[in-house]
Design a protein around this nucleic acid. Sequence first.
RNA 1: GUGGAUGUAGCUCAGGUGGUAGAGCACUGGAUUGUGGUUCCAGCGGUCGUGGGUUCAAAUCCCAUCAUCCACCCCA
Length: 421
Amino acid sequence: MKQKIQPVRGMRDILPEDAARIALIEDAFRDVLIRYSYEEIRLPIVEPKNLFDRGLGESTDAVAKEMYSFLDRDNSELALRPEGTASCARAIINHSMAHEDKPRLWYAGPMFRHERPQAGRHRQFQQVGAEAFGYSGPAIDFELVHVVTEVFERLGLLDSVTLLINNIGDAAARSQFRDALVEYLNPFSDDLDTDSKQRLISNPLRILDSKNETTRCILKEAPRLKDFVSEDSTKRFETVLEMLDAAQISHEIADQLVRGFDYYTDTVFEWVTDRIGAQDAICAGGRYDGLIELLGGRPTSGIGFAAGIDRIALLHSATQEELEYRSTDVYLIALGEEQRSYLSEIANRIRQGTNLRVREHTEPGRMGAKMRWADKSGAIWAVIAGESEESERNVSIKWLRSDREQMRVPLCGMLEVLEAA
RNA sequence: GUGGAUGUAGCUCAGGUGGUAGAGCACUGGAUUGUGGUUCCAGCGGUCGUGGGUUCAAAUCCCAUCAUCCACCCCA
């Protein structure tokens, strides 16, 4: 036997039963988004690398260390997209959509980050995202949170997730805060944990997230981001919170919540869960009022979220009852090859007249083996056709999941029996 | 990128101190030649992740390497 070919590290096959769960989750997002009047956009998986350099920030981990980038045949730098927002923003700029339309878009598809694989973290992973461009009022912030809440409710996950929300102000406020934070922390530099010491240079805002106790202690007296945020922004954020309260959407204000990409401004939010391991963020988003301009478009406000479908699927399988998965409703068995064409006639009749999923047994073998296949397929019925059924133009219907007695009905009455169940 | 654990039959896993590989489930056949899911009997199936080394002898000891899982980091 030849050596087996392994899939690429961090890339995985999603087998039918898991695929069904993923489809269930994607369908929930799609259905809710469509009812909120969001439109689907299909975006390329490969983009110019500098779209992400500029859009997400060159110092972010996703760009600096985790990008799947490569040279095209003409030596231009390309990258597999690590997220969807930058592509979406590029698209609305390229098609001049922002001016007249105020587009509300959603997308679904694979994203790529070259990270070390772990529970809930793969190098190719699935996201559903939505973005709204040109809306600056607080109601749109509320609406997107509401959309996601509705999806989680529909999937029965609302009890296992927590919504964290914060206001991080605009880029200027954040940069002032960053300076103040660094200035405050510098004297304590030696007392910080090693990670935080590193981040003092690379990404100071992340220090706020530290789990180290001494670091946390030092942070108690540190400057607060909210003291640097403009009055307008604070007011706006308060309105968003009021709307959430009025809609009884429970949320926690998380001072330490900062997002991983540079483009975020003002409202940011994230749903976390404690049921799926260390990678606990299942959906996150926020405003990005500077992104369109950064990418060469006219100043346009934006807001969106991205949901990690693989992680939501993990959560779903951890909390929900087992999916009742089966591929087949009706299993058709011909006793001998002579009944093959009669069997096809039966199959066509069921497929055309109902939504039932029909499988014909195609292999030779004895009756017992065929019945075993019928059972394993998960089908509710075995429909059997032998010589006598064919000559009398009827079929035998056997219930595989109940004690109901096998019955023989004329072909024209078959659908009635199947649909009655 | 760093650390820990694990790789033996399709799957889940046994195989103290080296002696030439096992169970359960699954699969195939039979008991039951037009009836599955229960039972009984029989059978198929493994260069023990890969490559080196030590040894008369390696699944077992040593080295390297790959992969998976979990955590750090980061993030959806």
